[in-house]
């Protein structure tokens, strides 16, 4: 093979941003340690850490975007980005796996154990049931208990997830009709879900919002592949809007839970798993929404072409990932 035909891999110049990021994490770690121990300097050091982090993120991502836009990244760098985003999302999957595993453990093992014969010796009279705040619960609360057709809901969620996944086949092949049918079917499932389940129930609305956002995002992806920037911007903005409304609904849900259901983070292991799982998911939706917003801003300033738009695709992968996590949460946290 002729060495001259092989492209040179881009290696960036020395950079100041990593050390700035490290300083920010040192500040964040120190500040958070102080803060949780009620030291007065805690919040200030934490805030400073965030400010430095923000500066680093702007500078670093700015440098990457500049390098990308000036054509420094060859095919090999592009495939490196693809591999890395995939592996990064895998690490996120494992992070959520720890919490899903925890929920499984408390529901299947620890709470039933506390109500077992042996458990009765330590906690007489405790009846194991889910939701549970444990044998030493002091305050009553209402859970987000589901009162609908469970099987129907689960089937609908799985069908929608499958439809969305398979819709990417026709998109890659450029088959518009097939893609439209599959995205249409996904939307139909969303409508059915809303109609047949309790419409006033926030988690159902949230499921519908995220599923719809996945449809609009996929259509945005289709548009950029066709080189239709106007339509891309429109559907990307729509996706972002749906995501923001989702977050708004979640805030409403939390306020409702705290003020009317007396369901708190401290409501035993039910409250703990409920808030930690939906909370970390909400945090990831926020991160995904920021990514999409950056992509929208970049598209508005003329970045991306129909052949080169991996930054957007990476954000889309991430959005689909938070979407699937939600569907699983919807089933195991709310329904089952």
């Amino acid at each position: 093979m002729n060495a001259q035909t092989i492209e040179k891999y881009f290696v960036p110049e020395p950079s100041i941003y990593p050390i700035i990021g490290s300083i920010s994490l040192l500040l964040l770690g120190t500040g958070a340690s102080f803060w949780v121990n009620s030291l007065a300097a805690g919040p200030w050091i934490t805030a400073l850490g965030f400010a430095v982090l923000l500066y680093m993120l702007f500078g670093w991502f700015g440098a990457v975007i500049r390098e990308s836009e000036t054509g420094k990244y060859g095919k090999n760098v592009d495939s490196a980005f693809r591999w890395s985003m995939g592996w990064f999302i895998f690490s996120e999957v494992m992070f959520f796996a720890a919490f899903f595993g925890t929920l499984f453990y408390v529901r299947v093992i620890s709470v039933p154990d506390l109500g077992s014969e042996v458990g009765q010796i330590f906690w007489p009279g405790f009846k194991a049931a889910w939701p549970s705040a444990g044998p030493h619960a002091t305050e009553a609360f209402e859970s987000m208990t589901w009162v609908g057709k469970s099987t129907l809901a689960i089937v609908a969620v799985i069908a929608a997830a499958a439809m969305l996944t398979f819709a990417h086949g026709p998109m890659e092949k450029g088959k518009k009709g097939q893609l439209q049918i599959m995205l249409g079917l996904t939307l139909l499932i969303v409508v059915l879900l809303l109609a047949s389940l309790s419409v006033s129930w926030v988690p159902v609305i949230n499921t519908a919002l995220l599923l719809a956002s996945a449809v609009t995002l996929t259509w945005a992806h289709w548009s950029i592949r066709q080189g239709n920037r106007g339509q891309f911007n429109l559907f990307l903005a729509l996706t972002l809007l749906l995501g923001v409304v989702f977050l708004g609904c979640q805030v409403y849900e939390y306020v409702h839970a705290y003020s009317e259901l007396n369901l708190k983070l401290t409501s035993g292991v039910y409250g703990a798993t409920f808030y930690m799982m939906t909370g970390f998911h909400g945090l990831h939706v926020t991160i995904g929404a920021i990514m999409l917003a950056v992509m929208l801003a970049r598209s508005l300033s003329g970045h991306f072409t129909k052949d080169r738009h991996f930054a957007f695709e990476a954000a889309a992968w991430y959005w689909h990932f938070v979407d699937y996590v939600w569907l699983l949460l919807f089933v195991v946290v709310y329904i089952l």
């Binding site: 949780v36 408390v106 093992i109 620890s110 444990g134 044998p135 035993g268 292991v269 409250g271 703990a272």
Partner: peptide
């Protein structure tokens, strides 16, 4: 620090 009971049997954890 935040009152969860993942690892506390009194709250249903372990």
């Amino acid at each position: 620090h935040f009152g969860t009971t993942f690892f506390n049997a009194a709250g249903g954890g372990d």
